[in-house]
């Protein structure tokens, strides 16, 4: 899958995901919001860098 976002679009979307981390830290790890955030973050990384990509592997194994 090739990247589909410009650098500036990718930066904006990643920042948006980062802004939600403080809220997630208040939740339990089983909260569906956490899974939702994680899935969306992976999608953003794929759109930013393409798939396969080292960044995606590093993120997924974190």
């Amino acid at each position: 899958i090739p990247p589909s976002l410009s650098s500036s679009q990718a930066i904006e979307l990643i920042k948006k995901q980062m802004e939600q981390i403080d809220k997630l830290l208040q939740l339990h790890c089983d909260d569906p919001e956490v899974r939702k955030w994680d899935n969306l973050t992976e999608q953003v990384i794929i759109r930013a860098f393409g798939k396969p990509h080292d960044n995606l592997d590093v993120y997924s194994s974190a």
Binding site: A10, I11, I14, I21, A48, A62
Partner: peptide
């Protein structure tokens, strides 16, 4: 729960690194 918090902090650092890459 403790490892969950660590994981989120780790993911935040990774995302910061990705933004730095995109700025280059």
């Amino acid at each position: 729960q403790n490892s969950f918090i660590k994981t989120l902090h780790n993911k935040r650092s990774l995302l910061e690194g990705f933004i730095e890459q995109l700025k280059i």
